[in-house]
């Protein structure tokens, strides 16, 4: 009796240890997960790329009337709430003046046109995103096409990613956003309070063969394509024009370029 009880405790102990060790193994095994194996089967219309990128031609976007439809297109299809309280604001793509879009690049004698030009800013879909490093649950992660995504259902709302993002591209749902959505789009999920969100390069549209909403609404001012493909439209524009990126000195590798 005594010995069998001891044996039982021994086995139970070893089993408990095994259960405890399993998650540790999973961590080290998890590099496998990034491979193609875990990819969901793509639609035959889906647009694919090695690294999605964007070139914004600011010469074609000179007034608030030029950028407003672009911002509205995004807000509408992504169910972005319109909060009255500025603290609670949710922004995926918005306009900033040059000195805020490119802090550190401003100068006293800046061309007046540039100074008050509405620069569109959004998540830079960095090649080496600090937000993904910081997230403790992999709720924000990088896809193989370079897009930095959010899993709204896994996010615990710790906001470490917001502190890690050097571009202020992330928003937190400080309260339930649903009552503040003017017109609900049933094609895209609404979010709940307490989670972080940001621009996703319209991954949901790419999956069905459509370009991002902002690109579509820009009348050709925003180009979108594969940075890994030398023949793509974005690479063509980058070859032809001098472009700048936001805070590229930080080494995050922003995939959004600006022609000034």
């Amino acid at each position: 009796m005594e010995s069998s009880r001891r044996k039982f405790i021994k086995i139970a102990g070893i089993s408990a240890l095994g259960l405890g060790v399993k998650p540790v193994f999973n961590v080290f095994a998890s590099s496998e997960e990034h491979g193609r194996k875990s990819e969901i089967k793509k639609s035959k219309d889906a647009l694919t790329a090695e690294q999605w990128g964007m070139v914004i031609d600011t010469r074609k976007l000179t007034t608030a009337e030029d950028v407003e439809p672009i911002i509205n297109a995004c807000n509408k299809i992504h169910n972005i709430p319109d909060h009255q309280n500025k603290n609670h604001e949710i922004k995926w793509i918005w306009e900033e003046e040059y000195e805020h879009a490119f802090p550190g690049k401003e100068n006293k004698y800046l061309n007046e046109r540039i100074e008050h030009l509405p620069f569109l800013v959004l998540c830079n879909q960095c090649e080496d995103p600090p937000c993904c490093r910081a997230c403790p649950t992999k709720a924000t992660f990088q896809r193989e096409d370079g897009i930095v995504m959010m899993d709204f259902h896994r996010c615990i709302g710790c906001r470490f990613c917001m502190a890690a993002c050097p571009y202020g591209s992330r928003s937190f749902n400080f309260r339930d956003p649903r009552p503040f959505i003017k017109e609900k789009n049933n094609e895209f999920p609404t979010r709940m309070k307490g989670v972080v969100e940001k621009c996703n390069f319209c991954a949901e549209r790419l999956a069905v063969g459509k370009k991002p909403a902002c690109v579509e609404a820009s009348n050709g001012a925003i180009a979108f394509g594969d940075l890994g493909d030398p023949g793509s439209e974005v690479r063509e524009l980058l070859r032809e024009n001098y472009t700048i990126r936001r805070k590229q000195g930080l080494g995050t590798g922003p995939s959004v370029y600006y022609i000034v």
Partner: peptide, 14 residues
């Protein structure tokens, strides 16, 4: 309500 009852904001997120 959510963390909106605090003074935190999009800019000062902690």
């Amino acid at each position: 309500f959510g963390l909106g009852i605090t003074g935190m904001s999009r800019d000062v997120s902690w």
